[in-house]
Design a protein around this nucleic acid. Structure first.
Lengths: 194, 194
DNA sequence: AACGATACGGAACCAGGTTCCGTTTACCAG
DNA sequence: CTGGTAAACGGAACCTGGTTCCGTATCGTT
């Protein structure tokens, strides 16, 4: 498994194809900011100056485009976990801080949390990508906090999905405060004082 | 505000209209069990043996049909709050029990929790109906628990929506356990032991 | 310069919700 | 019992939004 073959794999692509892919990523990112991740495909195509067919050639399903747009942010979110664990006074603090980071990420991407739960098969890749990258992160933090005797054990997937769910419908409703709820949830994990 | 004018208000309706409305409610309830609250309108129409137009005459928006189907269950859920408060050893116990009830209600209605968050204006009635009936219930329980010094204060709306969100995507994913998460959330409200 | 592979555009298609309107039916009056 | 009329009906048509298809244009190589 070579490390950096992302730039120039085996089959060199045509220049226009690469150019369009880039344009699409930028257009999609912009559209997502304006309309949320549910921005109409046709709008994205227009912004990028391509036809809808081109979108589907580069990103077979809508979800693939979403994954591509947020790939970097998901990765840095995941990578923050070990860093926080090292720099925080306690594992529980690290967990709290990381959850906060995760919540921030989700609520700034209107509709991302929602999209995560579309039962449509097309969104499976999105789901899978998030899990692949973030599950190890939470697992690391949870294990550390459990080992330190600070929290009761919980299935990491459960926590991740739960927090994800709490972020649904955030910005639409100014009174709804997912950050607080997530903090309460993490607080509810603390061990003992029953 | 007369108490029981629901049966025979001012303008007497045609017999077939009332019959169809009843048939629609039953058909919708059945369809919701099979396909979740997102059951296609046309399917519901076929089950009820009516045309789609008839659905929209009785229930102007899809959400109105959903409200009508679950009206009774929402009401009894709301009414359970004072009862639980009276019968439980502590307000916190009552709160925990009520949340459990609420979660049970939501996860057995596939897609209801999701529908609750559709930003579509058509779902506003649904949202409003739930809030009108359930907000007083949680508020009662939260106030009692706060007065008893058992929990830290929290905006009832926030809690209600949070728990509602936790119930999204339940039955789809056997590993996801909203009941546990809701319990953890309520646990996180407990006062002091910091 | 020409040719084959690759990529493109966008019309067409497939849901699913909602609207519209010509037709049917229930109810009441005579 | 029989019109007449307002109420209610049915379902085709419409709209929006994702996805597919295929004839055409373009790239890069010979």
């Amino acid at each position: 498994m070579p490390a950096r073959d992302t730039e120039t794999p085996a089959p060199r692509k045509r220049a226009d194809a690469e150019r369009n892919k880039q344009a699409l990523l930028e257009a999609a990112a912009a559209a997502f900011v304006d309309f949320g991740v549910n921005a109409p495909v046709r709008d994205i195509a227009v912004r990028a100056g391509v036809g809808v067919g081109t979108i589907y050639r580069h990103f077979p399903a809508r979800a693939d485009l979403i994954v591509a747009v947020y790939r970097h942010q998901v990765q840095s979110c995941a990578q923050a976990a070990p860093a926080l664990l090292a720099s925080s006074p306690t594992p529980h603090d690290a967990l709290t801080a990381w959850i906060d980071l995760f919540v921030d990420f989700l609520i700034t991407k209107h509709g991302l949390a929602e999209a995560m739960h579309s039962d449509a098969a097309a969104f499976e890749p999105l789901h899978a990508y998030f899990l692949d990258h973030l599950l190890p992160a939470v697992t690391l933090l949870l294990d550390a906090a459990v080992d330190a005797g600070q929290i009761n054990p919980i299935d990491p997937l459960n926590l991740l999905q739960g927090v994800g769910n709490l972020c649904i419908g955030a910005s639409a409703n100014s009174r709804y405060n997912p950050r607080h709820l997530a903090a309460v949830l993490v607080r509810g994990l603390r061990a003992i004082p029953d």
